[in-house]
Design a protein around this nucleic acid. Structure first.
Length: 431
DNA sequence: AATGATCGCAACCGCGTGACT
DNA sequence: AAGTCACGCGGTTGCGATCAT
């Protein structure tokens, strides 16, 4: 396939953008929308290639970009998503409203990766480097559970990728509609939802166009189908049995109804996965200090019990970021406009894969798990909600399974990592 | 104060892929 | 079917800012 040259024209400027160039680009896009990026520079009077303009816009000039420090919650989300997705920054950015993939990538490379490495956690595998890993025990029930969890993580990875892809597609489909509205853009306005695809590259912020409902349908089908398959021993997908790695294919019928089929093949695109290891040593205990840090308020009280649905007892905290990433697509995506949506989302207990994943870990561990188990890492039990940023609480009612201890350790694995990260802000002497 | 090392971020580069012809 | 175009993505680089000596 041919690939058109981009910046090979002589006379095109490279390097840092000047305020004048920014102003030209902003003014042009505000008035006309970006249209064809290739044609934009000439129309806007810029001596830049279209690609450079697009990057400048998407990574810097877009009015709906949030700049500044990442909150604890955002860090957790990045870490967890990276464990699931690997270096798929655009997919990760999908779940971090107003953050660009470039920014997340930079933040990972300059902060989080180093932080994990210094804690002895391999930033690639998200496993403790020094851990001998339970995989060396020769298999058995634990390895089977580990395999199941790994499969599920792979599924989630594939699902996330599909979700990100569908979001992109849905926005592309609605591009023309937004083009016609692009003249309404008001730079810097919080309500700005901007021109189509590149502007909404942070698609968590983007408008839910006509395609979004379709995405929702597909993902609901995805979640429901996969999970029922996993939980149906008769289908060979029961958790107690061998869990094959199915691949689902989505297609549209003539009437746009989503269709789904499942085959027993792992998604080719799913390469990153978590291997849950039984690292429950919580070695942060006694060695870390709670430090008031910017963004702390973001997650303090995020999982407040007062916001829980009635009847939820035996609270446990787990992976707020994972909950975030399952943000339903039929609701307004701009969470800044709907700060309570986090709780709302968490309270949704439908066919959400991750919630069920979490429930699985907990229920199989046998009954309720005391939240204190998550607090010991940082030794601030009186702040028993703040170690896990945006705690999701669920009722753990499942029967104890044969791998209960192991699964609890799996749960604690993430908590220990996140506790360590939370307790180790970049400005502490540790780093 | 000067200098070198390191960090952090914006921007660039090249590839993959889908749409279109 | 093959070529072209356009765009998104992930890896990498360049450079100013900051830190350490």
């Amino acid at each position: 396939m041919g690939r058109s040259p981009c910046c090979d024209k002589v006379g095109l400027k490279k390097g840092p953008w000047t305020p004048e160039e920014d102003q030209k680009l902003l003014a042009y896009i505000e008035e006309h929308g970006h249209g064809s990026w290739r044609a934009l520079p000439a129309k806007a009077g810029l001596q830049r290639c279209g690609k450079s303009c697009r990057l400048r816009w998407t990574n810097y000039l877009r009015p709906d970009i949030k700049r500044g420090k990442f909150s604890i919650q955002e860090e957790q989300t990045i870490i967890q998503l990276h464990a699931l997705l690997g270096n798929r920054w655009s997919a990760i950015a999908t779940h971090l409203p107003k953050r660009t993939d470039n920014e997340i990538k930079n933040y990972w490379n300059t902060h989080l990766k180093k932080r994990l490495a210094k804690m002895g956690i391999d930033p690639v595998t998200h496993k403790p480097k020094s851990d001998a890993i339970l995989s060396g025990d020769g298999g058995g029930a634990q390895s089977k559970h580990a395999a199941n969890l790994s499969h599920m993580a792979q599924w989630e990875s594939a699902r996330l990728e599909a979700e990100a892809r569908l979001v992109r597609q849905s926005k592309l489909r609605s591009t023309s509609a937004f083009h016609s509205q692009s003249h309404l853009i008001s730079g810097g306005s919080p309500e700005f939802s901007g021109p189509p695809s590149p502007l909404n590259k942070q698609n968590s912020v983007g408008p839910a166009g006509p395609g979004s409902q379709r995405c929702l349908d597909i993902l609901n089908a995805w979640n429901g189908t996969i999970w029922s398959k996993m939980n149906d021993p008769g289908a060979g997908g029961g958790l107690a049995g061998d869990l094959e790695s199915p691949t689902s294919t989505l297609s549209y019928s003539e009437n746009n109804a989503p269709q789904m089929s499942s085959t027993n093949r792992i998604g080719e695109s799913s390469t990153a996965f978590i291997e849950f290891v039984g690292n429950n040593n919580n070695n942060s205990s006694g060695s870390c200090e709670i430090m008031k840090e910017e963004g702390e308020e973001d997650w303090k009280g995020f999982g407040s019990r007062s916001n829980l649905p009635d009847g939820i007892e035996n609270s446990i905290s787990f992976t707020s970021g994972l909950q975030d990433l399952t943000m339903p697509m039929d609701t307004p995506w701009n969470r800044e406009e709907n700060p309570d949506d986090d709780h709302h989302h968490h309270a949704r207990s439908g066919g959400n894969f991750v919630e069920r994943f979490t429930d699985l870990l907990l229920s199989t561990a046998g009954g309720s798990v005391e939240q204190s188990s998550f607090s010991e890492g940082c030794g601030e039990s009186d702040n028993n909600n703040n170690n896990n940023g945006g705690a999701i609480t669920t009722t753990a009612t499942g029967a104890a399974g044969p791998g209960s201890e192991y699964l609890e350790e799996n749960k604690n694995y993430w908590d220990s990592i996140l506790n360590l990260v939370n307790c180790s802000p970049s400005h502490t002497p540790m780093f």
